[in-house]
Amino acid sequence: MFVEVNDVKKSFQMSRQKETLQVLDGISFSADQGEVVSIIGPSGCGKTTLVRILAGIEKQDSGSIKIENHEVTGPGSNRGMVFQTFNLFPWMTIEQNVGIGILDLPEEERKKRVETYLAMVNLQGFEKYHPHQLSGGMQQRVGVARAMALEPKVLLVDEALANVDAQTAEQLMDQLLQVFAKTKKTVIYVTHNMDEAIYMSNRIVVLSKRPSKVIQVLDDELPTPRWEKDTRAMPEYGQLRTTLRKSLGLAR
């Protein structure tokens, strides 16, 4: 397996009281190379916490995470992350933001990568802008380009579309899917939106509410290439959606 998450548990110490809040209660799943695996679950169930552990900026209490059989012990450039809140550096221009994770590369190659990935998210011409001069959707595309510029083995995406409007989100979904397909990236894609999960992924990991466990792992075999509108009209789409609703406890 390319990415292996094995029995990961995590609790937070509540600062004032002595009690702890258990968030992740033994999460296991895996992802093959080139697969897009969605993680879906109710708000507050620990999706962000899980992604942060995968990124290496939060430490699990127990359990292990392996990428190509190497244990994850901290952050590293084999993983890129797209944040729910964009998290661009406001003092840097767009090209500086995109190039910030690849400072070790020779200048020439760095430039080329910045160019490549800005083009991939259709942001040529905005190199010298600052983040606040861009719309939310554009900012998130910069976030995607910044993560992709690392050319990471695994791309971690945490509710990338939660902070953009519905229309922009639909366009971004198509763009993201194209980027994933073109680069054959392995992606862990967190969302709380069923349609997004179905549309974007090859597999869907359904989490319960806190303390969260994996309820079910659904295969998503809708034909590719997918296009937002067409894919949604397919009968298989409706079936998968019903299964997912049941799994999330929204229907019986």
Partner: peptide, 27 residues
């Protein structure tokens, strides 16, 4: 915290962290 987390995710450490994150953010 989110800026510092971001720096960490992109492996910006030590002197680079100071130069590219802490100093400009404090400016």
């Amino acid at each position: 915290k989110s800026m510092l987390d971001t720096a960490e995710v992109f492996s910006i450490r030590g002197l680079r962290r100071f130069r590219y994150v802490i100093l400009p953010a404090t400016f």
